[in-house]
Write a protein that binds this DNA or RNA. Structure first.
Length: 544
DNA sequence: AATCGACTTG
């Protein structure tokens, strides 16, 4: 008879046979370090048996880091908070290792404020203490704070290591600032640990991600070409980056190079990257081909994300029927993302009120944090059907349901490295008056070229409802473009704009014209991809 | 005796 698998053995005999008192810690450590989730869970069970076992020694400073690691992995907030009180009860709150673990635990649970509170109380901070709090800020989206803490860390004379730089680069990526990212890169080049830092795959991977997300795919490529050792993630990030920039053929070339020449085995993420390339390029049959090869050739079980990709490819290309068929055939329950992408496609295709309403209802049933997008899309459906009463109704529903509107913003980075952020209808900028005057001039010049604003696609501006007939000149990226032109953009000096939402159809048309009339290169990063505007054309080929 | 790890579709 074959021996039982290790997991089964571990769970079946452990509760009945308590370990010898002295080996609790080392067992907990082994389980917590394992990559197998069920064993990580076992670490927590063992901790409980330790508490109940009268012959066992009380938990000490070697116990908590590992139990907390398990809690962090599962984001078990209440269990971990209980552990925190045990830490205090056993008098270990001052231990740096234990405190660092608590900071990391709170950050994995999304409790940045708790993490910060613990961090601030650490009397003997170590490099790891700084690393975990900086990472906590980055994973929770507080990029500016991460950089502020990094500066403090340097003032305190701690030497940054690969973890520090990985987080710092991640913060620059989140802000979307190319010049900040280059500053971080330069810091590494000047560091005494230069060789060590620049040979690390993790650091290089975060640099590739940084450069491709900050608009410089050329620099991303350079890092990729020069790094000594590439792992699958390096390829994945590169494939995604190229796809995001609309360099679809090259993106697929990298996949081919990775699998055929380097003989690397693609993983589930690689296929998300390749499918995303197909999606940006509108390559429907290729997308199906890769999905099929993933399942049948590589034997990778498709996850809901993969279904999401293929459904989006189909729907965006106008094959809404086939997309719906895929939804009905997939083995897992569709999530809000899938319903939203179908609804989005219906909006663009004017696929009919009934279907759109049905999809919106489905999308709203699955609660997640992006419901405001559904309301915005639904109001667009009603607007294009000229059902303005229903547009108003949606707006009322939104406020009644207390839906948090995601405020749209556009930020622009100037050559001097300063970032200027605008929201719709913003008048806060010191040069606001000039910006609005210039915008009027721009619109007049464009109208001479035959441009007519088209508000049909946007009954709401970046989460704010507008009255029909209102000018769309308030869209935040228009303010950014106007400001960019004022600061002397021109040939060789592109305007770099970052948006948190997607570009609307009318703004897209307008930006193309601006790039032609003003001979300006405009690079816009929206929620999911880059648009490079030049000579009246966009790199997305109007497919986005 | 130890604490920090990522690339994801819309």
């Amino acid at each position: 008879m074959p021996p039982p698998p290790p997991t089964a053995r571990a769970t079946s005999h452990l509760p009945s046979l308590p370990p010898p008192p002295a080996s609790y810690n080392s067992l907990i450590r082994t389980y917590a370090r394992s990559s197998v989730p069920s064993l990580k869970l076992e670490a927590l069970r063992l901790y409980h048996s330790l508490l109940l076992d009268p012959s066992a020694p009380p938990p000490n400073r070697y116990t908590f880091p590992f139990v907390l690691k398990s809690c962090a992995f599962f984001s078990f907030f209440s269990e971990g908070s209980q552990l925190h009180s045990h830490v205090v009860k056993f008098g270990l709150a001052c231990d740096t290792y234990v405190a660092n673990s608590l900071v990391h635990f709170y950050s994995s649970c999304g409790k940045l404020a708790c993490a910060r509170k613990v961090f601030d109380k650490i009397s003997e901070k170590s490099r790891v203490s700084w690393n975990v709090i900086i990472d906590a800020c980055v994973t929770n989206g507080d990029y500016q704070e991460a950089l502020a803490l990094f500066r403090e860390m340097q003032v305190e004379k701690f030497v940054p290591d690969i973890y520090t730089f990985q987080s710092v680069i991640g913060a620059c990526t989140g802000i979307g600032s190319l010049s900040l990212g280059m500053w971080a890169h330069k810091l590494m080049l000047r560091s005494t640990d230069r060789e060590l830092l620049l040979s690390d795959a993790l650091v290089n991977n975060s640099l590739i991600d940084l450069y491709s997300k900050c608009g410089s795919i050329a620099l991303a490529r350079k890092v990729f070409d020069e790094m000594p050792v590439r792992d699958i993630a390096s390829w994945n990030i590169m494939i995604l980056g190229l796809a995001m920039h609309g360099l679809v053929d090259e993106s697929i070339d990298y996949f081919t190079r990775m699998t055929s020449i380097e003989k690397l085995r693609p993983n589930a993420i690689t296929f998300i990257a390749v499918l995303s390339a197909c999606n940006h390029g509108g390559l429907v049959s290729e997308g199906k081909k890769y999905f099929d090869s993933m399942v049948n050739h590589y034997r990778i079980e498709p996850r809901i994300e993969h279904y999401g990709c293929i459904i989006d490819i189909l729907a965006r290309a106008g094959f809404i029927e086939e997309a719906l068929e895929t939804v009905s055939k997939m083995p897992c329950k569709p999530d809000a993302v899938i319903w939203r992408s179908l609804l989005d496609a219906c909006c663009k295709k004017n696929a009919g009120l009934e279907l759109s309403e049905l999809l919106a209802r489905q999308a709203l049933e699955v609660k997640d944090d992006a419901t405001s997008g559904v309301y915005v899309m639904l109001s667009r459906v009603y607007a294009s059907a000229n059902r303005w009463n229903d547009v108003a109704l949606v707006r009322r529903l939104m406020s009644e349901d207390g839906v948090k509107k995601e405020p749209g913003f556009s930020s622009i980075e100037l050559d001097d490295g300063t970032m200027h952020q605008f929201v719709a209808g913003d008048t806060c900028h010191p040069r606001s008056e000039e910006i609005y005057d210039n915008l009027q001039t721009i619109e007049k010049r464009l109208e001479l070229q035959g441009y007519r604003p088209d508000s049909s696609q946007a009954p709401m501006i970046e989460g704010v409802a507008v009255v029909k007939g209102d000018s769309l000149r308030l869209h935040s990226e228009r303010l950014a473009i106007s400001f960019g032109l004022l600061t002397g953009a021109g040939p060789g000096r592109p305007i770099r704009i970052l948006k948190n939402l997607r570009v609307c159809k009318d703004c897209h048309t307008m930006t193309k014209l601006v790039s032609q009339v003003y001979q300006a290169e405009i690079i816009v990063r929206d929620r999911i991809r880059f648009h490079h505007f030049r000579d009246g054309k966009c790199s997305c080929m109007d497919y986005w």
